[in-house]
Amino acid sequence: MTLALAVDIGLALLILAMAAWTIAVRDTFASVIGFVTYGLLLTLVWVRLALPDVALTEAAMGGGLTGALLIGAAARLRRTEATVRERPGVFTRTLAAVLSATVTAALSFCVLNLPDPAPTLAPGAAAKLGSTGVGNPVTAVLLAYRSMDTLLEAIVVLIALFGVWSLAHDRFWGGCPQLRTHADSEGILAYFARILPPIGIIVGVYIFWIGADFPGGKFQGATILAAMWLLVIGAGLAHFPPVSQAWLRILLVAGPLVFMAIGFAGIVTAGAVFAYPDGFAKPLILAIEIALMPTLVLALALLVAGAPQRMPPQ
């Protein structure tokens, strides 16, 4: 029973307690707050599992943006809390509990039976790390070995954005999304929104930049920059561009298109799509990441903002 194990057990119990509370509590708003806390605790677990990249992503995406999204939704839906009262009966709840417990038991059995010399692709990845010219193996996997997944990743985010925008009313199409805030421009939030973003942008770019060799990367950096943009708009100092804006659409589309262009260029220079010529891997990867940054920042922020709600000021 080393000290580390004790900490792990404590953390695990804390997380399970928080998850149970989030599910069981009656009031939805409290449940959302519980979920945000749960997300941040989960970041600690990733640190304990020595996976810093994932910890950063979880903190930024799981705790931060998802939390903002859910808190916004919970605040607006608080009034409908009373209407939906019919909680399923005892029998349904017990049956659901039994089924969930069976699934958990099966999974636990599988976890305990995982093979001991755990099969891993780490040696293979480490061997070929040199040719990708990137120090951080996770970034190497993301942008070299399995670059198709990352491209599809960006396309998933864009399609989700199209889906969210398709939910606008026809009369608001081409208008601007809105954050439901009632901040006054002289208040403390405006002051906060003037001080934090510059530092935030530096931190975001820094995380994006060191992603090549140390834990970090474009997703985490883009999330931080998106958060800063949301903060500024939330404080009322700026507002979202209209959906039909040309530069907005070009920037949104630029990331994947540049990625594909470099990918197809790979046929000529390195004999396969998404292959990098020897020696030029790092600059190309950086070019792709730089192209993807604006796409991700805009897309993630607009996903939180939701469908366009009002016509652009003529």
Binding site: K128, M148, V273, F274
Partner: peptide
């Protein structure tokens, strides 16, 4: 068959 990026399957796609 097409090996994406030239990386062989267990690692690549």
């Amino acid at each position: 068959i097409y090996i994406l990026g030239g990386w062989m399957p267990p690692l690549g796609v």
